[in-house]
Design a protein around this nucleic acid. Structure first.
Lengths: 211, 211
DNA sequence: CTAACGTTTGTCCAATCGGTCAAAAATTTG
DNA sequence: CAAATTTTTGACCGATTGGACAAACGTTAG
């Protein structure tokens, strides 16, 4: 019997092996991109033969698709948590902090996503224009409410969200460059705390000198 | 005769054809990544046969390498222009504006660079840790001078540069996502002006309400 | 014209790719 | 135990890949 992506009934071995494959595929896809990765690479990283891997996922695309589906859920969780209750500036600050923590703790997921978008999002375009746009529009409305109430400065909520995504994910997607530029002294583990401090100041106060 | 990458003597035809190939390769590489692109694709985009293309560039890597070398020069030009003369806030604002204009006018170059970094910068790592780090350190020192003089708020100059890179290049690298989220109404040509307005406000004043 | 040189192409090749298949091995079930 | 089922593997396939090569073609200088 072969295991389709929509077959819900799975044995213990199937669950374990599928997890093993997805973990290996995340590693391989995120560093080589979809077309740059081979089934052999993933199979080797998962410690099994290629036909064995293809017994659990019939096609290379199925692995990638499963990975992307899981990714989007966890990836958008921080934005979903952005809520109307609580102080607006505090809410935004903790959203930025959470996104930065995700860049630190799940850089492979970030790179996998970046790879997909960079190449025109051929496989998740409907999700972007659908689920993602809906969520962002909804949160933009919340932010707009804060602006109208005078709780935060008036600007464009959509571009505000973009800038938070860009600045935080930068530390995952461009990690190699960040570490190279910071050098051996400052490029160590402390770089995320430095980034958190900087981003907090940037988003709250900007660059104008006080007074 | 075959044309090596370090052969300085070139006929008129060689110059023209090499330009044609590089232009085609920029298009193909930036949308498919290095491994995702084939010599055939580039040759077809350049309007010539594969062996003909290989007459001008012996290997696929040579095309990519030439492209990356040229890229870095033009890509870092805006940062090189950041100068100590003139008002600091004005200097930074025009740096942001120039970078955003590059994201708008040269998105393929931005994506080519992003692709390379995403995959660990295997081909330009020495440049990052060398030339790039030197330049950034130098400009960070200039910015630090402004901070000491009280001209701009005190923060981390390196992370400031990172955040400018991240926010501006986002509009080239994640363009598909930006347009999908903004939708057909706001995702048109005006999005770069909206971004410019937002980024100026963000970097100057932050999000705290005035008063 | 002709010889030399630069350019283009058709053909070919070995390696790698995603994926199939039947049969062996391991596991579960009765 | 034995039968049924699930898992694993080696061998194989057609398509695509980067690249080699010699022959044909075009151009130019003497």
């Amino acid at each position: 019997m072969t295991i389709g992506t929509d077959a819900p009934r799975r044995t213990r071995i199937q669950q374990e092996k599928r997890e093993l494959i997805l973990e290996a595929a995340l590693e391989v896809f995120s560093t080589n991109g979809f077309r740059g990765s081979t089934i052999d690479q993933i199979a080797e990283a998962a410690g099994m033969s290629k036909p064995n891997l293809l017994y659990y996922f019939r096609r290379k695309e199925d692995i990638h698709e499963t990975l992307m589906q899981r990714l989007l859920d966890t990836w958008l969780a921080p934005l979903r948590e952005l809520d109307d209750i609580g102080d607006p500036l505090t809410e935004l600050r903790s959203y930025i902090r959470r996104k930065l923590e995700m860049a630190r703790d799940f850089p492979r997921e970030s790179r996998l996503f970046a790879n997909e978008i960079l190449q025109g999002a051929p496989r998740i375009m409907p999700l972007l224009a659908g689920e993602l746009k809906t969520l962002v529009d909804e949160k933009a409305a919340v932010i707009k409410g804060w602006m109208r109430a005078g709780k935060i400065a008036k600007t464009d909520p959509w571009h505000l969200i973009f800038s938070i995504w860009a600045t935080t994910q930068h530390y995952a997607d461009f990690d190699v460059q960040v570490r190279a530029v910071l050098g051996p002294n400052r490029g160590g583990d402390g770089r995320f705390e430095d980034a958190a401090r900087f981003l907090e100041q940037l988003f709250l106060d900007g660059l104008k000198p006080k007074g």
